[in-house]
Amino acid sequence: MRNERLRRLTLAALLLALSVVLGRFFVIPIPWTHGYINLCDAGILIAALLLGPAYGTAVGGFGGMFLDLLSGYPQYALFSLIAHGLEGLTTGYLGQRAGSRRGYQCLALACGVVVMAACYFFSDSLMYHTWMVGILSIGGNLLQGVIGGALALWLTPHLRKRM
């Protein structure tokens, strides 16, 4: 029991580090929203599917926040903590119920990505005092989430075999 908890905690820490590294090295800036597209969602969604909602929330929230602080976007840090934390929570909760059924995992990933994009819509609208910036951010955030979800869907079964 104690060994299993340590193994899960270690994997969560590695996935947190992986999401920050992936997010830092694969960056595509989006000028109209002052944000960027990155691959941090892959680590978040893998953690959520493999380890469940608690670890998905922690990896998502802290990974998104640390990435923004390291990337020079401290104004987004609190919003990323919430948006990616809720993404990990939603995906982890629904993914736990899905088990290894591929179709339900896709639905869990889609719900998590939509929650994240909705959070960034509200945060961008609030920060820039216009809902137009929020609308412009939806496409980039959905694209980032879909790419991360596709990687998570592809890698999770292979990682689950090794656990």
Rank of each mutant, 00 (worst) to 15 (best):
P74N: 05
L78M: 06
I82M: 08
L86I: 03
Q75H: 15
A83D: 06
G103Y: 09
L94K: 01
T91K: 03
R102H: 12
G88H: 00
R101E: 05
S80Y: 15
Q75E: 10
L86M: 03
R101T: 07
G72C: 14
T90L: 08
A83C: 11
Y93F: 06
S80C: 04
Q75M: 14
Y93E: 06
G92A: 07
T90S: 14
Q75Y: 15
Y73T: 07
P74H: 09
P74D: 04
Q75I: 15
T91G: 04
E87A: 14
L89R: 08
L86W: 08
L81F: 11
G95R: 05
S80G: 12
A77H: 07
G99A: 00
E87N: 14
Y93Q: 09
R102E: 12
L86A: 05
A77C: 11
S80Q: 13
L81M: 05
Y76P: 00
G72Y: 10
L78I: 15
T91H: 00
Y93H: 12
G72T: 13
L94D: 04
I82P: 01
G85W: 01
Y76F: 11
P74C: 13
T91R: 06
F79Y: 14
L89A: 14
S71K: 12
L69R: 02
L89N: 05
F79S: 12
G99C: 09
L70K: 06
Y104K: 04
L89C: 05
Q75G: 15
A98S: 06
S80M: 07
R102A: 06
Y104F: 10
L78W: 15
L70H: 08
L94T: 12
G95K: 04
Q96D: 06
S100T: 06
G72M: 14
R97P: 12
G99N: 01
S80H: 09
G88V: 01
D68T: 05
Y104T: 10
L78A: 15
A83I: 00
T91M: 05
G88W: 03
F79G: 15
Y104S: 03
G99D: 00
E87Y: 04
Q75L: 15
R97D: 03
G88I: 01
H84W: 13
T90Y: 09
E87I: 10
L86H: 03
T91V: 10
G103F: 05
L89W: 04
A83M: 08
L70I: 15
G92C: 03
Y104D: 12
G92T: 00
L94H: 00
G88C: 06
G88E: 02
P74K: 07
L86S: 03
L94I: 01
T90H: 11
Y104P: 04
H84G: 04
Y76C: 11
A98H: 04
L94W: 00
R101L: 09
Y73M: 10
T90G: 12
Y104R: 13
I82Y: 09
L69G: 13
S80A: 13
A83V: 06
Y104H: 13
L81E: 08
L69A: 15
Y104I: 09
G85M: 10
Y93I: 00
D68W: 14
G72Q: 10
R97K: 10
Y73Q: 01
S71E: 12
A98C: 02
A98W: 02
Q75V: 15
S100P: 11
F79M: 13
R101I: 05
G99T: 03
